[in-house]
Structures are given as C-alpha cells and as structure tokens.
Simulated assay, not measured.
Amino acid sequence: MVNGTGIYRTMGAGGKPSIAFVTDRSISFQIYERLYRDRKYLPSFDDLPWSGGEPKAEIAAEG
C-alpha cells in the first residue's frame, strides 16, 4: 500500500476510465481506476463514494 487516501470516484464517460480523487498529506490528485487499484490505495476503489451520488443505472452499465 502507498501513502494517500481515496476520497471519491468519478464515472468515466465517452470511453474514458473512471477516476479516483486522492489526498496525500498536503497534496491531492486524480488517478485512473487501474492505477488506484494497482497501487492499493485505501479504501478499495469499489468502496469509494461516487462524486455527486450514485451513478445512473444506464451509465453504470456502460462502465
């Protein structure tokens, strides 16, 4: 596991991957879902809340 904590995730659109927003001490950044999972940030990507609430069912089905 690396330093940093996942805060929320954003659903990718138009074929782009989903993104997680991470804070690490005094910095914050966005990272693609695959890298978030590979680097084993906590909480797990699946446990992060969605930005703006749960995605609509039809959007979630595309991801």
Rank of each mutant, 00 (worst) to 15 (best):
P49V: 00
F21S: 04
S18E: 14
E58T: 10
V2P: 04
P49G: 07
T23D: 13
K56R: 13
R34N: 05
G12K: 12
E54F: 00
R9Y: 00
I7L: 12
P55Y: 05
Y32N: 12
R25H: 14
S18L: 09
P55K: 06
S51Y: 12
F21K: 07
R9K: 14
S18D: 13
S44K: 08
G12A: 11
G63P: 03
P49E: 02
F45H: 00
A20R: 05
R9Q: 14
Y32F: 11
D38W: 07
I59D: 07
I27W: 14
S28W: 09
F21D: 03
E58M: 10
I19A: 04
R9M: 12
M11R: 03
R34Y: 13
K16E: 15
V2E: 15
R37C: 09
S51V: 02
I19P: 05
I7Y: 06
Y41Q: 01
N3T: 12
R34F: 06
R25N: 15
R39M: 14
I31L: 08
T5M: 05
L42N: 09
K16H: 13
K16D: 11
F29G: 07
Y32A: 13
Y36L: 08
R39A: 10
V22D: 11
G53E: 10
I19C: 07
G4I: 02
G6N: 10
S44C: 02
A20L: 02
T10L: 11
I59H: 00
D38R: 15
P43F: 02
E58K: 12
S18T: 04
G15F: 10
A13Y: 00
G53K: 01
I31W: 06
S18M: 08
Y32G: 03
W50S: 00
E54P: 01
A60H: 05
T23Y: 11
Q30V: 10
K56I: 01
P43E: 01
I7G: 03
A20V: 00
T5A: 03
R25K: 15
F29N: 06
V22G: 10
G52M: 14
